[in-house]
C-alpha cells in the first residue's frame, strides 16, 4: 500500500474513533448499562433498535461498543504517551551518557524482556488493584522498554555524529545538546513507535478486561464484551464479533499509521 494511503486510512479511522468517543451519548441508541432481560441475547436486528443485538443481560451491543471507545482511546493515548515519555528519557540518558547509566538501563531492559509482558501486566494490575489507573500504570511500567531500546541505540548513533561534537565544541552543556541537538533527530523514530504503542495499549487493556482485571465490569469496554462473548459464544456470537472487529480495526489503524509515518520519515531518518 502506498504510504499516503496508509497515513490517511489509519489516521482517518482513529479520528473517526475519537469523534465516536466524544459524541457517544448522542450516537448510542441505548444506555449502555440498561438491562432488559426480556430481550437478552437477541441476535442483530431481531429486537427493534438493537441493530447489533444484545448481550446476556439484554444490554445493547452497539451502545456498549460505542461507549467502549472511550476506555480504549483513553488507555491508548495516556498509557502510550507516558510510556513514551519514560522510555525516551531513559533511552536518551543511556545512549548519551553511556557508562553506569547505560549499564543500569540496559540491564533493566534485559530483565524486563525476560518476563512475558501479559503475565507481568496481569501481575501488576493484581498488585495495584483492578481499575483504569492500574491498567495505565501497568502498560507504562511494561512498555517503556520498547522506547528505551530504540532511543538508546539511535542516540548512541546521533551522539557520534559531527553536529553533536560541534555543539559540544561550542560550549553547549550536555542538557542543551540532548534537548536541542539529539532529541529532534530521535523524534521521528519515537513518533513511529508511539503510534505502534497506542495499538499495543488498546490490546493490553482488552486483555486485562478479558481476564477481569481492568475497569469495573459495569463500564462498557471492548475487552469486557469480548470476555462475555467468549463465555456465551455458542448462544450469541455477535457479542464477541463486534468488539473483536473493532479491536482488529483499531490495532490495524494504529499500525498502518505508524508504518506510513515510518516510510514518510524514512528519507529524513536517512539524512
Amino acid at each position: 500500500m502506498p504510504r499516503d494511503l496508509r497515513i490517511w486510512l489509519g489516521g482517518g479511522f482513529i479520528l473517526f474513533l475519537i469523534l465516536v468517543a466524544m459524541f457517544a451519548p448522542l450516537l448510542a441508541p441505548f444506555d449502555p448499562l440498561e438491562q432488559d432481560l426480556m430481550a437478552a441475547t437477541a441476535a442483530p436486528g431481531v429486537e427493534p433498535g438493537h441493530w447489533l443485538g444484545t448481550d446476556s443481560l439484554g444490554r445493547d451491543v452497539l451502545s456498549r461498543l460505542i461507549y467502549g471507545t472511550r476506555i480504549a482511546l483513553t488507555v491508548a493515548f495516556v498509557a502510550a504517551a507516558l510510556a513514551c515519555l519514560l522510555g525516551t528519557t531513559l533511552g536518551l540518558l543511556a545512549g548519551y551518557y553511556r557508562g553506569w547509566v547505560d549499564a543500569m538501563v540496559s540491564r533493566l531492559v534485559d530483565i524486563w524482556m525476560a518476563f512475558p509482558p501479559v503475565l507481568l501486566s496481569i501481575l501488576l494490575v493484581a498488585v495495584l488493584g483492578a481499575g483504569l489507573t492500574s491498567v495505565i500504570i501497568a502498560i507504562v511500567v511494561i512498555d517503556w522498554t520498547r522506547f528505551a531500546r530504540v532511543v538508546r541505540a539511535e542516540t548512541q548513533q546521533q551522539a557520534r555524529l559531527e553536529y553533536a561534537e560541534a555543539a559540544s565544541a561550542l560550549g553547549m552543556g550536555h542538557g542543551a545538546i540532548l534537548w536541542r541537538e539529539v532529541l529532534p533527530n530521535v523524534l521521528p523514530v519515537v513518533l513511529v513507535l508511539l503510534s505502534l504503542e497506542m495499538g499495543i495499549a488498546v490490546i493490553v487493556e482488552a486483555i486485562l478486561s478479558f481476564v477481569g482485571l481492568s475497569v469495573s465490569t459495569d463500564t462498557p469496554t471492548w475487552g469486557g464484551m469480548i470476555a462475555e462473548g467468549r463465555q456465551i459464544i455458542y448462544q450469541a456470537w455477535w457479542v464477541l464479533v463486534f468488539p473483536l472487529g473493532a479491536l482488529f480495526l483499531t490495532v490495524l489503524a494504529f499500525n498502518q499509521l505508524g508504518d506510513g509515518l515510518r516510510q514518510w520519515l524514512d528519507p529524513m531518518l536517512k539524512r
Partner: peptide, 23 residues
C-alpha cells in the same frame, strides 16, 4: 504479511475460536 504482523495473537486466537470453532 503486514496484517499478520500488526494483529497480535490475542485477536487471532479469538478469531479462530469464533470462526473455526463455532461458526
Amino acid at each position: 504479511n503486514g496484517i499478520m504482523l500488526a494483529v497480535p495473537d490475542f485477536i487471532w486466537a479469538l478469531t479462530f475460536v469464533l470462526v473455526l470453532g463455532v461458526l
